[in-house]
């Protein structure tokens, strides 16, 4: 019996070891990746913003185009404001944003782009009407845009993209004045 036990003493076969270590490495990589994304949820300032596509709410198109890509706006300063009708702080900044748009819309050099984050069509309509908003607005379908800009989206957040498509400034939370918005835009010029 003892002899038999000695005979049976053997190590872990190499193929099994390979599988074990590979599985562990895979798991750690996966979690590590998740961790990296959790730690840097936001698009990096100073880096180009990955392209995204959007389809405007009817009546809120830009230049009469229904559908467009961010890259179509290369050469202009793009201010992406993320909002939602259920978001109270957004209401605070909505009039200021509209006023800013009135300053820039004729210049054609700056585009203010409202992106409506997980919202109901009815809620969005009510909100846009309530604050007399006229700047281009689109829903963030499947949260595609917000997942590019910030995985841990809170609303409102505003992203300032320069003429080369590079992210230059991010404002988290509502603006308190028109001047705050315009001064950021001017700093990008």
């Amino acid at each position: 019996m003892t002899e038999e036990i000695i005979n049976k003493k053997r190590g872990v076969p190499i193929w099994a070891q390979v599988i074990i270590w590979a599985a562990l490495a895979g798991l750690l990589l996966l979690v590590g990746f998740g961790l990296r994304r959790a730690q840097n949820p936001m698009a990096e300032i100073g880096k180009p913003v990955p392209d995204f596509e959007l389809e405007y709410y009817p009546g809120y198109e830009y230049n009469g185009v229904k559908k467009m890509k961010l890259s179509d706006l290369r050469g202009k300063i793009v201010v992406v404001n993320i909002w939602a009708s259920w978001c109270k702080p957004c209401e605070q900044e909505a009039p200021d944003l509209e006023e800013t748009w009135q300053l820039y819309k004729d210049g054609g050099d700056v585009v203010l782009l409202g992106v409506d984050y997980v919202d109901t069509p009815k809620g969005a309509e009510g909100y846009l009407t309530k604050f007399d908003i006229s700047f281009p607005n689109a829903p963030d379908l499947k949260s595609n845009i917000s997942s590019i800009l910030n995985r841990q989206m809170g609303v409102p957040e505003t992203y300032f993209i320069d003429r080369e498509g590079i992210l230059r400034h991010v404002k988290v939370g509502p603006f308190t004045s028109v001047k705050e918005i315009t001064s950021i835009i001017q700093s990008i010029e």
Binding site: L28, V31, G32, L35, A38, Q39, P41, Q152
Partner: peptide
């Protein structure tokens, strides 16, 4: 979100 992530990892 917390800074202990990498250390913990």
């Amino acid at each position: 979100n917390s800074p202990i992530g990498p250390f913990f990892m």
